[in-house]
Design a protein around this nucleic acid. Structure first.
Lengths: 338, 338
DNA sequence: AGAAATTTTGAAAGCGTTTTCTGCAAAAAG
DNA sequence: CTTTTTGCAGAAAACGCTTTCAAAATTTCT
């Protein structure tokens, strides 16, 4: 079936060694032989088996990427950033989704060994977090938006706490005195940190005001349901901080369906700044993390860590998250679509 | 560095063969030996090198996916569908982006050999289309939304022509007598087929009416610019059919910025039905292809083709594309958000 | 108990590459 | 004309695994 280097060697009447040298430009070969090899390879339509190649060279030129799932624009933007950085370095991507499942995570991690030069892992689900220790020492790892309890891996993280804090502070500065929070998925570090930020800002800016938290799971549906719940409250909040943009969007739908206006009756804000946030009406005020950049940054970090292992220290880089004000928070009256 | 099967064999005082058998459950091993091996593997934290494994077994349990890029929700949805189908079959994904560049495509294809059991390729850019012949016979291939000039590969495609035709027909049935078209990227089969559909429907439904086509490239920016161009026309169209949703969204922005209303002054419709289409205001009337399903379908097709090569005939499966009416076309007055 | 049948194990041959190392020419030096 | 150097090519040893094959150990049967 597949034509191997041996076939090319036979066809060109040289040894496999020479074929390898000629094709890779490594080592020295007489011009005549090089041409004979090239011609033979062309004639046989030879494509080297990169699996075998990397077994020998111990270099796969591939990065493993482990995400919780593909659903939604956050991951799509993230992988876009990762891919763009990888491409410019000539690296390929082996992607897997863990679905917050410990077993699937384990499977995926094992399947990576021998196929990738390094691993980019996004494991916000706390149960899954110890799993990368399956690979202790085997593989350079960069953790992305993942709590590293032991601070032993390099990691790049979003400033969830700071972003949430700033957003709630902004809401307070708009004059809203009751601010509800639609939290994210349980057992998730992003959820926890954003909720902490909400609570801290609330305590600092509106002392004495009771927090109102209802649980969501980062999806539009959950945001929709959570908003309905908030609307049923005896005294409904004047503003809602959703843990991410998709739940904010679901939340807005529920509010508008109830015949209320965003932001005049209830202000709504999100987190992430996914591309859709600009298109939705009213345009969503949110916390912007430059998602694609975040991915690219993590890949750069890993790639350089692979080239110089000593570079890959256990430092955690925190990328900033800033409030971007659009229309949904009523914070300004101009119609700002960007 | 890495602990190999040899290390485990030594630790357990058995041969490599027995370790392999014990760990994979293939062949027979005495219970006592199995336990010794398992314990040793555990102790040494052994993870098999899947690269080496698949060199022997000639099975990688990995599918190569070649996309033009990651940008936008179309690809994100597509890969979500592919991943979901792959996961349920225990397959991994090696993804690459070609960026419509022949050389990058070639690189990516070569890198796949020996790393994947089959290839899912999306190569709408016509220049790149012959490239998969680099791999002639080497790899099972399913073409996704790609013209297969020689009808030699299995392929699953969107009914671009039918969808576009139906959409323009719908526009005509709404009473619009001048319908402009924002085309997609040049040299792209989706572009061509959708434009053909537009022209055919126009000829059938509004005979004598001149087509108005301005070129875009499937991006929001291009849609925005194209709309401005259309607005400058001496007699601007009453409706615009954009080649995809993102350009329709850009188009709507330009129209609204010009102080006009969608759909009252100009109706706008798109193609793809990306998730955002529902959130944009007015909600976008578009041609729905079930993107994730499309990806999943293609993967199923490939996966079964890998298991039974004779199954992988050169049939091309066409997935339907139906018009979904929302608000942006003025086709009905109800506010329909879904 | 001895032979035959059965089970279990280990040695070794790959899988398709790269790379080291040896050997042979040809060229340069003596 | 011999010796030393240099340049190139091929044989063979890895890389980490699976799998065949034959030998060894065990069980079953006369």
């Amino acid at each position: 079936m597949g034509v191997t280097i041996k076939d090319v060697a036979r066809e060109a009447c040289v040894s496999m060694a020479s074929v390898s040298r000629a094709l890779n430009g490594t080592g020295v070969v007489r011009k005549e032989i090089r041409e004979r090899v090239l011609a033979a390879a062309e004639r046989l339509n030879y494509v080297p088996n990169s699996g075998a190649q990397s077994l020998m060279t111990r270099r796969t030129r591939t990065i493993g990427v482990l995400l919780p799932r593909f659903h939604g624009e956050f991951f799509s933007e993230l992988i876009r950033g990762i891919d763009s950085a990888a491409r410019s370095r000539g690296l390929h991507l082996l992607v897997s989704t863990s679905h917050d499942d410990a077993n699937e995570t384990r499977q995926a991690l094992r399947a990576m060994v021998g196929r990738v030069d390094g691993l980019l892992a996004l494991l916000p689900h706390v149960d899954a977090q110890f799993l990368y220790q399956t690979l202790r020492g085997t593989l350079p790892i960069v953790l992305l938006s993942t709590a590293d309890i032991e601070h032993v891996y390099a990691s790049v993280r979003i400033d969830n706490f700071g972003g949430a804090y700033a957003m709630v502070k902004h809401l307070a500065s708009c004059g809203y005195r009751s601010i509800g929070h639609i939290a994210g998925q349980p057992d998730n570090v992003d959820t926890e940190e954003r909720t902490r930020g909400y609570l801290a800002a609330l305590a600092d800016e509106l002392p004495g005001v009771e927090p109102i938290i209802v649980q969501g799971d980062f999806t539009e549906e959950a945001g929709y349901k959570a908003a309905q719940e908030l609307l049923r409250l005896p005294q409904r909040p004047r503003a809602i901080f959703a843990a991410n943009d998709m739940s904010a969007i679901g939340c807005m739908s529920a509010i508008m369906e109830a015949g209320l206006s965003v932001p005049d009756d209830i202000a709504v804000v999100g987190f992430d700044d996914i591309p859709t946030a600009r298109f939705v009406r009213p345009a969503l005020t949110t916390v912007s993390v430059h998602i694609a950049d975040l991915g690219a940054r993590a890949l750069e970090c890993l790639a350089s860590g692979i080239e110089k292992p000593e570079t890959l220290s256990s430092i955690t880089e925190i990328v900033p998250a800033e409030v971007v004000v659009r229309d949904s928070c009523g914070g300004h009256r101009r119609s700002n679509t960007n």
